[in-house]
Amino acid sequence: MLKNNVGGIDRILRIVVGLALLVGFFLNADAAYRWAYLIGIVPLLTGLLGTCPLYSIIGLSTCPMKK
């Protein structure tokens, strides 16, 4: 199982940015670079799941420490 390493504010920002990019995908139907908005899936999923594989690789965590 993946360890949670994305904290509260980080999760909110990832979800907002991911949703904004996906909304851009649907609003720019005729743009040549429309596919680039699909990158919003990555921050959306990492925000919803609370884990980021890149954070795990570099040993970073924005979760508060447990006492």
Results as ranks from 00 to 15, higher is better:
60 L>Q: 06
66 K>C: 08
18 G>D: 01
8 G>C: 07
28 N>I: 05
41 I>Q: 01
44 L>G: 10
1 M>V: 10
12 I>A: 15
24 G>P: 02
41 I>W: 08
9 I>S: 09
35 W>R: 06
17 V>H: 00
58 I>N: 01
67 K>P: 12
36 A>P: 03
45 L>E: 02
43 P>K: 15
43 P>N: 12
38 L>W: 09
26 F>D: 00
53 P>R: 13
60 L>R: 11
41 I>M: 14
15 I>Q: 03
28 N>M: 10
56 S>L: 08
54 L>M: 15
19 L>P: 05
28 N>S: 15
7 G>E: 04
36 A>S: 11
29 A>K: 12
11 R>A: 00
61 S>T: 15
37 Y>I: 02
47 G>E: 01
24 G>N: 11
37 Y>Q: 01
12 I>G: 00
63 C>P: 04
3 K>Y: 10
18 G>A: 04
53 P>G: 08
60 L>V: 09
22 L>G: 01
21 L>C: 12
63 C>H: 05
55 Y>W: 03
7 G>F: 13
26 F>V: 10
39 I>W: 10
52 C>A: 09
20 A>Q: 01
22 L>P: 03
41 I>R: 07
32 A>V: 01
25 F>N: 10
41 I>G: 08
52 C>Q: 08
8 G>I: 09
23 V>Q: 06
32 A>G: 01
44 L>W: 09
4 N>E: 10
24 G>Y: 06
10 D>Q: 07
39 I>C: 09
31 A>P: 01
65 M>D: 12
2 L>G: 07
38 L>A: 14
46 T>V: 12
19 L>A: 13
39 I>K: 00
11 R>S: 00
18 G>P: 08
61 S>K: 04
2 L>A: 14
18 G>V: 11
59 G>R: 15
18 G>I: 10
58 I>V: 15
44 L>H: 10
59 G>A: 11
54 L>D: 00
4 N>M: 09
16 V>F: 08
